[in-house]
Amino acid sequence: MNITRRIHLNPQSKGNLGKSFEIEFRTAWLDLHGVPWNGSDLDDRHHTFASRHPDAVRSYQLGNTQESKTALLTLFRRVLKDTAPVHVIDTRAQADALIVTALEELQVLDICAEQGVRLTFFLFPTDDTESMTNVGRLLLYAGDRVDYVIVHNPAKSRGDLFKGSPLERQFIEFGAKAITLPAITPTTLLAAEKAESIAKRGLSFAELSHPEAEHLERLLAGEIQWAMQKMFRQYDAIGDLLLPTDLVPKQSVVATNVATLSPQPELNFEER
């Protein structure tokens, strides 16, 4: 299948996993490679994504089951008419059932496939059994109709339920690739929040990484820069799951899979 466009979606039920955090690195990576993108923010409580990228991201109210279907119908109609090669969707917590229901009832996966659009699901292993069961259901529902990126976030979860489990093996079999989020100090994160408060608007991580913009102290901006670099290397390695076929950088063909992760200095010894 020649993929002409990509839709990135993180349809996971649990909150506080680092979904919006990860998106900041991903969109910065897209900008770095000059890949045009736009996005949708389905987190109607925080709207973090839209506030940080007001020119590129549109906000939606998911609401209840019926309202969410209407919102997602509007969203996917817009996305399918759009020409940007990548569309990034940030969802709120507890929305996985709404999203899967809408995907199924609106036949989104089949219609996207007809138009050369492929979805990539970003899934975050947690230590919560219910959340991980939902992840399994997502794989069961979508199968090989979408691509999967497993996002490990050691700051939020050890991933003991997932690592080495039959579920992880199934994801590998279905072509999933893994990345690991860097752990950023609470000091830098708090300073970023304070900078947003002072600026009276959301600040993207890309903006925060520039010390000359003086949103953050040099030392703290440096930590963001380090995290960016760490994530960019990983995105380069899984570019074939993030981009349309024509835009995939050559080197990303040789990508790591879930089982062969690069060293992660933020983990303890003997942790994968």
């Binding site: 399994g136 109709r145 997932f162 489990s165 579920l167 279905f174």
Partner: peptide, 20 residues
Amino acid sequence: TPQERPFRRPAADDLSLNNP
């Protein structure tokens, strides 16, 4: 009605998690 489009999916029994 929606056409049945075959796709590959895992067996439901193969999606278990580690037992802590």
